[in-house]
Write a protein that binds this DNA or RNA. Structure first.
Lengths: 219, 219
DNA sequence: GTCTATACTAGGATAGAC
DNA sequence: GTCTATCCTAGTATAGAC
């Protein structure tokens, strides 16, 4: 089964190779910024082959997003969450979630790019991803926060969903910055662990009740 | 000087009109997603006129980004900051900055879109904007934070730049979300003031020293 | 300042041979 | 499975008349 370079592949191999090459290009230049010519060239094949595997350029794009959506599912985070939430170890929850997200963004930078680009370009994919992955995440997290507010551990004068937004904002903004600028040492260069620690600390201290507030509460 | 509709304009008027129309389109569909045909159509003129005013499509795009960069300067925030920083009224600083940013993003949604799209597409504009506007903002804010850490008011175990990043992350992520989804009532719908209040509260409480920590500090 | 007409290139997609 | 050749449309850009 040894093979040199781009010689004859099986249909599945070829399809997959095209997918991989196209992911790189679409994630860097967006849908309309990428041509099927480039994709073919980068894959070392003729354009005709692309259209054997994907009826249209749009189909290829959709296939990519679909693929990435499964691969980059937040299932890992979800299970992490469910586990942690039982324990009510707040710091653990936020730290692990953050570190998990940041390292994931790092390992798969194309995903963030594709997501952002497709969102800005108004592709249905982004909306689907939000509906199927982000909204549930909001639900779980904000419910947990609401619970901790009822427990009297978190201050209850902030909308839980706004807390989630603040939290996800820190994370995604940080990842975007890393993706776009930090490689050139612009602005900031820190380890993922340090970032995760900082964000969890800020968020948690930010939403925890002060002890004194706690004691002279009005009802 | 009364005029009906798209009849003969002066060169400057026309140029400006093209700019405005193009801003809308480029911000929605990106550079390569927008055609000069569409722009001409939307402006109610022929393509030839566009090329009378801008040598190439790229030139038009650059002109837009340049224009937006000036218009959307953070000067307002900077002067706001300088004022506030003297007073050391921490909450005021963060709240005003946040509200200012959010309302600005709201008033000029095209700006965020153009910035993000050009950043993702690797256009030099985004990099320039970061260098000229964002980096200075980081400097000012992180210096202020470092000062407050020295004052013993903020905890000093978090990198000031990471704090700035967390802060800007909340804000821009929130604005992006509003831009992309919240109009459809997805996820979250809150007033700008409530969001600004939440973000400033979280951040500030998150980075302030606890009173007890404050008293039994080790050196 | 504006249009119509058009040149020219690039991009998506297909036919048909191997 | 793959290529070459090619079709066709869309896209940028220009010429020249009004």
């Amino acid at each position: 089964m040894t093979r040199t370079e781009a010689s004859r592949m099986s249909a599945d191999e070829r399809r997959n190779q095209i997918l991989q090459v196209a992911i790189k290009l679409f994630s860097r230049k967006g849908f309309s910024g990428t041509t099927t010519r480039e994709i073919a060239q980068a894959a070392g094949i003729s354009e005709a082959i692309i259209f054997k595997h994907f009826a249209t350029k749009s189909d290829l794009y959709s296939a990519i997003l679909d693929y990435k959506c499964h691969e980059a599912g937040l299932e890992q985070s979800f299970s992490l969450l469910h586990e942690a939430i039982g324990s009510k170890n707040d710091y653990e929850i936020f730290y692990e979630l953050t570190l998990n997200a940041i390292t994931h963004h790092e390992k798969d930078p194309e995903f963030l790019r594709l997501l952002m680009l497709s969102a800005l370009e108004g592709h249905e994919f982004a909306e689907m991803f939000v509906r199927r992955k982000i909204e549930p995440l909001y639900e779980i997290l904000s419910e947990y926060i609401a619970q901790r507010q009822k427990d009297g551990v978190f201050r209850n004068d902030i909308n839980p969903k706004l807390i989630v937004r603040a939290f996800l904002g820190m994370i995604t903004h940080h990842s975007m910055n890393k993706l776009l600028w930090d490689s050139q040492q612009r602005i900031l260069k820190v380890s993922d662990e340090e970032a995760a620690r900082a964000f969890s600390e800020i968020l948690l201290s930010g939403i925890k009740k002060n002890r004194e507030e706690n004691s002279n509460v009005e009802n």
